[in-house]
Design a protein around this nucleic acid. Structure first.
Lengths: 293, 293
DNA sequence: GAGTGGTCTAGACCACTGT
DNA sequence: CAGTGGTCTAGACCACTCC
């Protein structure tokens, strides 16, 4: 851990590995599958292997590199972990579009959402939270929502401070851009059923997309939020998350457990939001009190 | 993405995979290396393969499971990506201690650090930020610090809003518990040299551990912080990060780019803090303004 | 020197995708 | 159907660790 002027580079490329390689060279001391991986990475980044196009097949690569197919597969596994290619059974291996990291400003977002509750509906409908994040309009976005009633298991009960078995409204939703396949995040939200049953619009997915977000929905049943606590962790994706978010098995997800407290200090919503780790940045701002204040 | 009553489980175990497996069964439709991986996972979680002990060697596993060594290695690769085992060249593969996730409350931490600046030194010295996080005392902790002067590259210059080539003080540090090998995080911090040169204590690692943290250090040269912005992302570890933080290549790190602004709205510190993804939770709190205020 | 994990080969069969 | 990636085998040599 001595020489690291390039720490910052790691944030941008997600990778920083040795010098350039112009072929699989037996004089190089690194394993040959890694040399091949880095050569292919260079060809992708130079644009020679363009985004969306098929890579040479494994047998072709084995022939052209002089390596066995096993070694070629090791190289491709490396590229997949780097998020550079996507393998599809029976079809081929494709160069991924270079992923632009989407920055989500959570701290500002929540206050913005709260302020918006006081606006009239026409105004709210114009732009929602996702549109705020992405700069896209509602016509570019495709919503998925799924509502159900469940009973609190031990973990949820503890998180809400309610008895096990308490009815909860469970909402699963994600939003995709119409021009891209994979959603930007997947969200699993839980609300105590008793809190929201006063407004029938909250109980069914038929009314989605609801203009104004969860804070507005809660305001219709008399709930004002005081603070939101978010616990961020990185973990491997579940198989279905990998599919939904279009990430390789080796790429982590950012998992945010969001807990909302109302002004009476009750937990009124718990949401698990899952982001693809290779294209998401979460931004938090901590405002500090003045010493002389 | 239909049936997900177990979303929450994913947060705790980092893994949730099919039912239990009591052997590598050819009737099972899953690949046999995965069956073996899950069988071994069950044996680890049951305690049969205790933490810290060596796994059966690859050849032993090949013999006992009736699979080839290649398939056994695939299974072990899976276990490594799950963070359950650590392979050491020439020695063996060892069961990892089950990792307790450490929760780091960033939002509260920074205000706490700021408040502490106003305390006297004896008080400050009693507990530092790391001790605050971990509950350990200074005697249990081992500090590493390394200072150097560097010139701002393009990225750093842009982040600071200063010309390329501006001298920066670069500080690399990490803290380990004396009882554990791997540090909880690694930190790479940059300060404009001109800002801190007024206090020679800030320019050398000899004075570490400095009681009071960066905010106190900055206060000695007349700087008061206004806010801290943190951008969180998940990415694969660099090879040396994997070694330092004791994680497998397949496990992601949480990378936090922390930017500190002073009350004159200058960027006064930029720090990249890297956490092992398999045992870190970052907690952020967003306090919302009252509607009636 | 014996044992370990890391790399590598030259095959094979499979499920899946296109035409 | 031919071609693709996914799985699997039965070997081999290497660097490394420990005795």
């Amino acid at each position: 851990m001595s020489d690291r002027h390039d720490r910052s580079t790691a944030r941008q490329t997600s990778q920083r590995l040795g010098g350039s390689v112009s072929g699989v060279n037996s004089r190089d001391w690194r394993p040959r599958y890694l040399q091949l991986a880095e050569e292919l990475r260079a060809r992708i980044e130079s644009g020679e292997l363009a985004r969306g196009t098929a890579m040479p097949s494994e047998t072709e690569l084995a022939d052209s590199s002089g390596l066995s197919r096993t070694s070629v597969r090791n190289a491709i596994r490396q590229l997949r972990e780097w998020g550079l290619v996507r393998a599809e059974q029976g079809r081929g291996t494709y160069v991924r579009a270079p992923r632009q990291r989407i920055r989500r400003r959570n701290t500002e977002r929540y206050q913005w959402e709260k302020d918006r509750v006081l606006l009239d509906e026409a105004e709210r409908r114009r732009t929602g939270g996702t549109e705020h994040d992405t700069g896209l309009t509602v016509d570019d976005l495709k919503f998925h929502a799924e509502y159900s009633e469940v009973k609190a298991d031990e973990e949820m009960a503890a998180a809400f401070g309610l008895p096990v078995g308490t009815p909860l409204l469970r909402r699963v939703y994600w939003t995709s851009s119409r021009h891209e396949t994979a959603p930007l995040s997947a969200s699993y939200s839980y609300l105590p059923y008793d809190l929201v049953k006063g407004n029938k619009h909250l109980l069914s997915a038929d009314y989605e997309p609801w203009p104004g977000g969860t804070q507005h929905q809660l305001s219709t049943v008399g709930i004002e939020l005081d603070r939101i606590e978010e616990v961020v962790q990185a973990r491997p994706p579940l198989p279905d998350e990998a599919e939904l978010l279009d990430i390789e098995a080796g790429v982590a997800v950012l998992d945010v457990r969001k807990t909302s407290y109302d002004i009476r200090d009750r937990v009124v919503e718990i949401a698990d939001v899952v982001f693809p780790g290779d294209r998401t940045e979460l931004c938090f701002t901590t405002k500090l009190k003045r010493w002389n204040a």
